[in-house]
Every structure is written in structure tokens, then in C-alpha cells.
Design a protein around this nucleic acid. Structure first.
Lengths: 238, 238
DNA sequence: CTGTTTATGTACAGCACCGTACCGACTGAA
DNA sequence: TTCAGTCGGTACGGTGCTGTACATAAACAG
């Protein structure tokens, strides 16, 4: 399939490239379907591809030797997976897991690095995105340390909702607990509290967002801060 | 003072540059003395300089709107302060505070960005350092969430010890509590536990490291992981 | 030497998690 | 239609912090 023609099969980050650069870039991409749970990167392992989500959603997870896991960022249509490739590193330090199945544009590591060298606009864009990532990861660090599980759950739902079509998110409490680094039972309590307030509804593997403004009020300010950072660094490119 | 001649007034990161590039870089630096507590960057504020610590020590701190603060990385002689300058950003998202007084090389933002464009070796080096930072910040996120205060205290002391001449660290429990995002009283308990084990000793504003191997055993593996990452990304440049 | 400031020691109730465990309910495959 | 597997609801005691408070001790300025 020719990725250069169909604008619906695109990625918001790449969309902000100049037409010329964008076309050249897309010509070297292929579209892949990513199933839920697929690992796009593992800590310590070589990165083979850069991914630009179209309608899938990927979690970036920090892992500890002791086994602990904590989601530190998310990449959907507004982002990409494989930032170490911009930094002269072959290996990933984070784990990247497909959290929402869907399509993505994929480019081999070597090819991506080649494009980075040839397209100053791409290089600039990727650097700005990297700065957004830095801010988000730092924010997540402090957020996980200070904020209540309920607020963090609300934040996570909002972030996922932003990167998903429709109001229904297909995830289990178990999965969410893995992202937030807490017990499954803890998520159930938090979710129930949000449900009782009429902000969400859920049944067996799906959570439905009913009241976004309410969720925003229930979430910590980290959500708003992240959006603001992205807006300032990426959208205000024009 | 001419920074190009005296090798003792240098910075380990810059030392790994090719002689040529290094000299040109140092020629545009000035040496400044940084007092304890001085803020080199504030979240949301414009960055005026890049700093390359000679014998001072700087903490990078994530701040929350709600007031919470958490140290996410540290820059001593092995690092630098002002990474957003490499990423096309003018503003800092983190706070940078001088945690150990001392000297640093300083270069204006514009000049630094100029050097980045002219010296591919510098660009490569800075990118690799950025990757180290990313790993460390992610690690800190999970560490603060999962590990005990005692282990985190040990880790912090080791990291600071690595970046300090001698075994005596001049910090109060109060300050440390700010970095770790906990109560002052909590740090006192952790410090006392480490002291009772004979790993450290302390009195009013100074902590002395007595048993490094012991401290390493008491710390979480995050300390070792961080060192390994730095070694792989920076030292193995040669 | 005195009074002030700063640093550390200690205590206590409170709370948000933890690990674990078990049950019921839903789902999908046989 | 039954059964196995998955998911969510709930409960228990335990623990590592929290916020607060107050006392002691060292450092310092006068």
C-alpha cells in the first residue's frame, strides 16, 4: 500500500512535516497492524524499527531489576516509538507495549536515521517531540510519587481517551494496575469511586468515559500540564 | 582565565571530545562559581546558559503544580545542565538547583547551539548524554515509586559521593528529604538505620561515607543500573 | 556567656497503600 | 449446556509512609 496518498493513514507528528519531507518519509514506511500486548521494544534489546502510530496506542514502561514496572509515557497518533534512535543508541532502556491494537507506520532503524540526517525539518520535529517526552516522563515520576491512585487513574483514562476513537476503552483493571504500578484490587476501588461519581462506567474489560470534564476535575493537574507541554512544543510549530 | 590550557578545570563529558572541538568549545566558555542553593533553571523559564560542572553538583528536580518536588537526576563533572537547548526548546521543564557548591564551565544558550551545529562530535556526544538522562529519569520514576526510603537514601548518597571529592557530603536531612520527596523525619530514620549498620556517619549538616560496598548493598539496584548505562553510552566512546 | 537559629531525635495517630485470598459473575470454547 | 478461564468485588491484617508536634543539641552572632 502506498502510504503517501491516503491522508487518513497518517500520524499527527509526521503531518506537521513540510509536504516534501513528509512524502519522502512516508514512501519508506510500511503499514503494520499491531496486536494488543505486542512488545515493540524491550529494555536492553536492540531496536529494529521506529513506529508512528496511526490508530494504535503504545505504553512506554520503565522496568526495575526487582521486577517493578511503571508506565512513564504513552504514544498514540500524536507521537512515536523508538526515541533512542534519534540519540545514537541502538538499545532501548524502556519497554514498549501495545496497549491499544491498531495500525502504525513502521520504518527500519537504519532508514529512520538516514532520514533524520537528510531532513532538517524531521530532525527538528523529533527533537521537539523528545523534549515533550522528557517533560512527560519527569512529570510521571513526581505524579506516581505524590498523587492518589484515584487521581492517577483519572489521568490515565483521559490520556488514553485522547488517543482513542470513541468513548469505550478496552482494558481490564488488571492491565491498568500494571501501568500504574499498583494492585489490581486497588484499581477496582479507584474505578468504583469514579463510577459512583458518574464519571465512567465499566464492565468486564471495557471502560466507558461518560464525563470528561468531571474526569479532568478528578485527575491531577499532571494531565493538563502534559497537554500544555505538547501544545507548546509541537502544535505551535506552524 | 583561559579554560583551554588547564586540564584540571574541565568536565568529563567535554573531555571525551576530539582535541580540536574541545579547544574551540572551551574557548567560548567561562568559569563561574556556583553557590549552594543557586537555581540554574526554573520550570517554564527561559534557559540562558548551559553549564558543565567542574567540581560542583546540580540536582534536576521535577515540580508539580500542587507543590511536590522530586529529584529525577543529578549532574556533576560527568554531565551537564541545560539539555533542552539541544532539543530546540528555550524553556526548562525541570528545576536545576546547585546541591554542591563549586565551579562550572558556562556557555550562553545561543553560543552552545552554535557549537552544536558546527561540531558533529559535540552533537553526537550530547545526544548520547541525553539518552543517559532519559534512562536515569525513567529509572528514578520507578525507583521512587517502588523502593524503600532507606534504599533510596543509600542510592542518593552513592550518587552524590561519586560526584564529590572526599567522603564528606555537606547536606542536611532537610535538604535530602526535599530531593527524595519525603518528610525530614523520615530521612532521619533512614540515616540512623544506615549509621547503625556502620555504613555512614553524620553530624549536623555533614554525612560521611564509611563503607561504600556496604552502601551499595543497602541501596537499590537502580544505582548500579545508572552507572552501567552511563558507562555504555558515554565512556565506551573512545 | 547568652540568646537565637538551625539541625536532629522522637513520638503518635492516621492513612493509603500493600499482599493475599476467596468468591461470584461473566465469557467463550467444547 | 457445561466447564474452564478470566475478570471484578470484597475483606483481612500489615506496613511504610504521612502530618504534626515538641524536645534536645549544636552552631553562631552579639
Amino acid at each position: 500500500m502506498d502510504c503517501t496518498t491516503s491522508p487518513s493513514y497518517s500520524n499527527r507528528l509526521l503531518d506537521s512535516l513540510p509536504e516534501e519531507d513528509r512524502k519522502r518519509f512516508l514512501a519508506d514506511c510500511e503499514i503494520v497492524d499491531l496486536a494488543f500486548g505486542r512488545k515493540l521494544a524491550e529494555p536492553g534489546e536492540t531496536i529494529s524499527y521506529a513506529f508512528f502510530p496511526i490508530d494504535c496506542l503504545v505504553s512506554l514502561i520503565a522496568t526495575l531489576e526487582s521486577g517493578g514496572r511503571l508506565e512513564v509515557s504513552m504514544a498514540g497518533n500524536e507521537g512515536m516509538v523508538g526515541f533512542p534512535l534519534m540519540l545514537g543508541a541502538e538499545k532501548s532502556s524502556l519497554q514498549a507495549v501495545v496497549q491499544g491494537a491498531g495500525a502504525a507506520l513502521r520504518m527500519s532503524s537504519a532508514c529512520f536515521q538516514d532520514h533524520l540526517e537528510r531532513s532538517p525539518a524531521l530532525e527538528r520535529l523529533m527533537k521537539r517531540y523528545l523534549n515533550v517526552l522528557m517533560s512527560q516522563i519527569s512529570q510521571s515520576a513526581a505524579c506516581a510519587h505524590y498523587h492518589s491512585l484515584e487521581a492517577r487513574t483519572a489521568r490515565w483514562l483521559l490520556m488514553t481517551h485522547d488517543r482513542t476513537r470513541g468513548d469505550e476503552l478496552r482494558i481490564t483493571h488488571e492491565f491498568l494496575s500494571g501501568m500504574l504500578g499498583v494492585r489490581r484490587a486497588g484499581v477496582t476501588l479507584a474505578a468504583k469511586a469514579l463510577q459512583r461519581r458518574g464519571l465512567i462506567d465499566y464492565q468486564r474489560g471495557r471502560i466507558t468515559v461518560h464525563d470528561r470534564p468531571g474526569l479532568e476535575a478528578a485527575s491531577c493537574r499532571c494531565y493538563a500540564t502534559d497537554r500544555k507541554t505538547y501544545g507548546q512544543m509541537i502544535e505551535r510549530l506552524a
